[in-house]
Lab assay of single mutants.
Amino acid sequence: HITLTNLITEETTHVVMKTDAEFVCERTLKYFLGIAGGKWVVSYFWVTQSIKERKMLNEHDFEVRGDVVNGRNHQGPKRARESQDRKIFRGLEICCYGPFTNMPTDQLEWMVQLCGASVVKELSSFTLGTGVHPIVVVQPDAWTEDNGFHAIGQMCEAPVVTREWVLDSVALYQCQELDTYLIPQIPHSHY
């Protein structure tokens, strides 16, 4: 019994991606959610070859190996599938703050939850000092008015990073160091 759908849910078992011959794909929301959820992320060749051979072929032979941004053979989907007991964002409290493009905020929040993070909706909701690490995620190029994202640091004691930190961490299924993704914050004294 196979159901085809464009939506990823808890029940989804396989995410089928358009890939090149070496099982490398573009980074899409579907790709990120498939990895975050520990699903099989496979090339569409799995479907076409299975139909051709009239049997369901082994997914291992068709698993996506990499993507056009993070590298052609990083094995993120395999790492995620085999590490669902070791979520990459466990112990983190993440607030997805401000506008985002090409990806609804609720989907970004679901993605970080699938990776083990707790989501907070407001900067004031962080449970500071409880052994949980707060992180604010923003997408600077989605902000149309002044660079308000440079002043988020005044509203909460949390590192502010770009959305790329989430996307790179999920694609590779390895929590990336914050340093290269940090957004400089204007210190309090400048006000």
Rank of each mutant, 00 (worst) to 15 (best):
I2S: 11
I2R: 06
I2A: 10
L4F: 15
T5Y: 07
N6S: 15
N6E: 14
L7D: 13
I8N: 13
E11G: 08
V15G: 00
M17P: 02
A21S: 14
A21T: 08
E22L: 09
C25R: 01
R27A: 01
R27P: 02
Y31S: 02
L33E: 04
G34R: 00
K39L: 01
V41T: 06
V41L: 10
V42S: 04
S43T: 00
V47A: 12
V47L: 13
Q49K: 15
Q49G: 02
I51T: 11
I51G: 08
K52L: 10
D61I: 02
G66Q: 01
V68L: 14
V69T: 13
N70G: 13
G71S: 06
G71F: 02
G71R: 04
N73L: 12
R79V: 12
A80I: 00
E82A: 12
Q84R: 10
R90S: 14
G91Y: 07
I94S: 00
I94V: 05
C95H: 11
C95A: 14
C95R: 04
G98E: 05
P99S: 12
M103E: 04
P104T: 13
D106G: 09
Q107H: 03
L108S: 00
L108E: 02
W110K: 14
V112L: 10
V112D: 01
L114G: 08
A117S: 10
A117T: 03
A117H: 01
V120T: 09
V120F: 04
K121H: 15
E122M: 11
S125W: 15
V132I: 09
H133Q: 10
P134S: 15
P134L: 12
D141S: 13
E145N: 14
E145W: 14
N147S: 10
F149V: 10
A151S: 12
E157M: 06
V160S: 11
V160R: 12
V161L: 07
T162R: 09
E164P: 13
V166M: 01
L167T: 12
L167A: 04
L167W: 02
E177V: 08
E177P: 15
L178W: 15
L182P: 02
P184A: 15
Q185A: 06
Q185Y: 04
I186K: 07
P187Q: 11
H190K: 11
Y191T: 12
